[in-house]
Design a protein around this nucleic acid. Structure first.
Lengths: 209, 209
DNA sequence: CTTGACATGAGACGCAAGTCTCATTAGTGT
DNA sequence: ACACTAATGAGACTTGCGTCTCATGTCAAG
């Protein structure tokens, strides 16, 4: 057999089967509820056994189900023709964008969060599962760009970290599960918090001159 | 039958059964691994059916179990002879206490957080059942007590909610998993953030007079 | 064309979660 | 003391997850 061969039909088939499963899972997730392996397999027109041949568990499948493009990047929130310079207004806009995405895809984000927590708690067993990535920092840095020169390096890092706590999906967990607050209230609180934090950082640096 | 009756033997019995279940769960958790309802019930020397009569699911039990005594309450952070009045200093002290507990029991908190996330992602069936218990708000309110009169009701609620985002175990997840920051840095960022938020809230209210 | 490896389908199986019913024990009020 | 009711135990039952085996159709190399 050829040692190094480009994609054969079998490879294509495997790739398609895997993709079909992920897309089926995404469809079912968007339709609401949490599908079982049976449902996903049926939706993908594949037998249950085959589904388990590609993913070790339902969770593994659901975690990988397409989330790409759902979370807005800096280029969507701050288009090229955007000329705003007020960092508080910009960070609030970034927060609003992330807020909407978080609540729209709440179930999926919760699942990813839970999966990453389980992984770090037990000790990385699987390397196939996607590692947790950081989209919020890009957004925060883009929002803070106009004010970056006004802050010392450490103050800037501190502000970014503090904002990262507020901007992510984790704050949604706190609002809903711990505090029992609705989405609108959460948005107001976060809006006030991020604006206050930016203002505080800027005031700190002004004082030091 | 008496309409308003003090604790009868039945009440005591119920209370003891519930406590036995929680303690059994805590024991098993500390021993490592994630016990099933069968194990917890056996450890508590109670039938499985009874366990389900007190807790709607295994997770509900596990989430409540191991937190007792681990997270410091207001009375530990603010003893009766405490006479501090600076809300920023007090909230920082509360943050420090919660911070230490979070990092000391990190593994356990991660497990519980993952469990509660998995549950809410799956079900959406039980809306009445509190997903997580909320110990941080007690701490926050105790810390803010000296300044409560200086804030409007809505500003006070907003500040409490914002602080709840920073004070919990979720921020630890962000610091470690998303930002990759160590404990000392996390503490510094949170300390600055909570102080800034309290100061901002107080300044807001002063401005409005 | 033939042979073996491969992707899949079908379904049985064990396991744990959660629900439900019925019987038993023990407090509760009269 | 008596009837009543609440707390529990025991166990059957359903459902979904994950594993396993076997049969079938198909691709690939000689």
């Amino acid at each position: 057999m050829p040692a190094n061969r480009a994609a054969t039909r079998r490879d294509n088939q495997r790739h398609r089967t895997r993709k079909d499963l992920l897309e089926a899972a995404a469809r079912l997730l968007q339709r609401g509820g949490v599908p079982g392996m049976d449902e996903v397999a049926a939706e993908a027109m594949v037998s249950r056994a085959t589904a388990y041949r590609y993913f070790p568990s339902v969770e593994a499948l659901l975690v990988e189900a397409p989330l790409d493009g759902l979370i807005p990047g800096p280029e969507r929130v701050f288009p090229a023709d955007d000329e705003s310079t007020d960092p508080a207004e910009r960070i609030d806009r970034a927060e609003a964008a992330l807020h909407d995405a978080c609540y729209r895809y709440e179930a999926q984000l919760r699942r990813m969060l839970a999966a990453s927590l389980a992984r770090t708690a037990k000790g990385s067993r699987r390397d196939g599962v996607p590692v947790r990535q950081n989209r919020r920092t890009l957004l925060i840095e883009a929002a803070l760009a106009p004010a970056r020169r006004r802050l010392s390096k450490s103050a800037y890092a501190r502000l970014c970290a503090a904002l990262a706590i507020v901007l992510g999906a984790e704050s949604m967990i706190v609002f809903r599960d711990v505090l029992g607050l609705d989405e609108r209230t959460a948005r107001k609180v976060k809006s006030w918090a991020v604006r206050s934090l930016v203002a505080a950082a800027l005031k700190d640096s002004d004082k030091r001159r």
